[in-house]
Simulated scan of single mutants.
Amino acid sequence: MLLKPMAAHEIAGNWGTVMLPIREDDSIDFVRLEKIVDRMAALGLNGIYTNGTAGEFYTQSEEEFIRVSELTADRCHRHGVAFQIGASHMSPQLSLERIKRAASYRPSAIQVILSDWFPLQDSEAIDCLKRMAEAADGIGLVLYNPPHAKRVLTPEAYGRLKKEVPGLVGIKCAGGDAAWYEAMKEHAQGISVFVPGHHLASGYARGAHGAYSNVACLNPLGAQQWYDLMLTDLPKALELETRIQRFMADYIAPFITRHGYCNATCDKLMSVIGGAADVGCRMRWPYRSIPASEADRLRPIAYELMPEIMKA
């Protein structure tokens, strides 16, 4: 089944990330990866995506990028599942080449970052995204703008980018307070707004459209059922969010704030806690990996706090 690119209003819900199983020699285990993608594509998620932060795009060779993208595109077209290809790279020139390659797989959208060495001024950011949109050949762009980006964009800046680059259909960002959401409604119309997974219910209540979800790292099916609950019983979904956030704040965030691990390491740890996919805790060099014993320690706590997520 050949899928079509998505318009902004069609990009919504719970999207699961494709994480890389890494062998002891630091290579990608593509046999395990194929099984992971096959299972994810059959779960009934709103969509799946490759090469986000947890997908370790910043460590991949171009040959590896092609293999990961082709494998995911093939399985998603077979299953009729919406998918996005992450074509980000720290080099804008290499990112353009990845975007051109990604477009050939006809994904629902293509994820990108702004050039990442010096922060771009408005005119440079517009020029950057215009070139990327041209390379995308009619497929919409989703801009990753996380808190660790060199420049975190304002609602007004998103509006300027959308005005100049109609092909910008979505963003991934940290979200904000009530005033931020009101400003996004004013300035960023026509952009699908995705927020962190553990803030999805409260974000949805204020106007967010979905999440490229860290909660889906724990259990993609549980995260999907939680999103579906938001559509029918938002108060109940918000109550569950308070417990999800407690788990993240008390048991996951300290690995970053106290011990200095990178965010993607925590996503892999959560995948081992949940056990939904054979990803493993191992990160690619030069990033440190959280020991798998920590997953064994935290698993009972996760089941006690969030049985709706863990037992789905």
Score class of each variant (00 low, 15 high):
Ser115Gly: 13
Leu45Trp: 01
Phe83Pro: 00
Glu24Pro: 14
Lys35Phe: 12
Val37Arg: 02
Leu45Ser: 03
Asp116Ala: 15
Ile22Arg: 07
Leu43His: 04
Arg98Phe: 02
Phe65Pro: 14
Gly47Ser: 03
Ser61Trp: 10
Thr53Glu: 09
Met19Val: 11
Leu114Pro: 07
Arg98Gln: 01
Leu96Pro: 04
Thr17Gln: 14
Ser115Thr: 08
Arg101Ala: 12
Ser61Asp: 03
Val112Ala: 08
Asp74Phe: 14
Ser108His: 08
Cys76Ile: 04
Ala102Pro: 03
Gln93Met: 14
Ile113Thr: 02
Val68Trp: 08
Arg106Ala: 06
His79Ser: 14
Gly16Lys: 11
Asp29Lys: 10
Thr72Trp: 11
Ile85Thr: 00
Leu43Tyr: 06
Asp29Leu: 06
Thr53Ala: 08
Val18Ser: 07
Ala41His: 02
Arg67Asn: 01
Ala109Glu: 00
Gly86Tyr: 02
Gly47Leu: 05
Glu70Tyr: 00
Arg98Lys: 12
Glu63Asn: 11
Tyr105Thr: 00
Gly16Asn: 08
Pro92Leu: 07
Thr72Tyr: 14
Arg32Gln: 09
Asp38Glu: 15
Ile66Ser: 14
Glu64Asp: 11
Gln60Pro: 11
Arg78Asp: 12
Phe83Val: 04
Gly52Trp: 00
Tyr49Leu: 07
His89Val: 09
Thr59Ile: 01
Val18Arg: 03
Lys35Leu: 13
Ile66Cys: 11
Ala87Arg: 04
Ala54Phe: 15
Arg101Ile: 05
Arg23Tyr: 03
Gln93Thr: 12
Arg67Val: 04
Glu97Ser: 03
Met19Phe: 15
Arg23Pro: 15
Ile48Thr: 08
Ser88Asn: 06
Arg23Glu: 11
Ile48Phe: 03
Ile28Asn: 09
Glu97Val: 06
Ile36Ala: 07
Pro119Met: 04
Thr72Gly: 08
Phe118Ser: 13
Lys35Ile: 04
Val37Asn: 02
Tyr49Met: 05
Leu43Glu: 09
Ala73Tyr: 05
Ala42Thr: 01
Asp74Tyr: 09
Trp117Gly: 15
Ser115Val: 09
Ser115Leu: 05
Thr59Trp: 01
Glu62Cys: 01
Pro119Glu: 02
Tyr49His: 07
Gln60Leu: 15
Val112Leu: 05
Pro21Arg: 00
Leu96Gln: 11
Leu45Gly: 05
Val68Asp: 04
Tyr58Gly: 13
Phe65Ala: 07
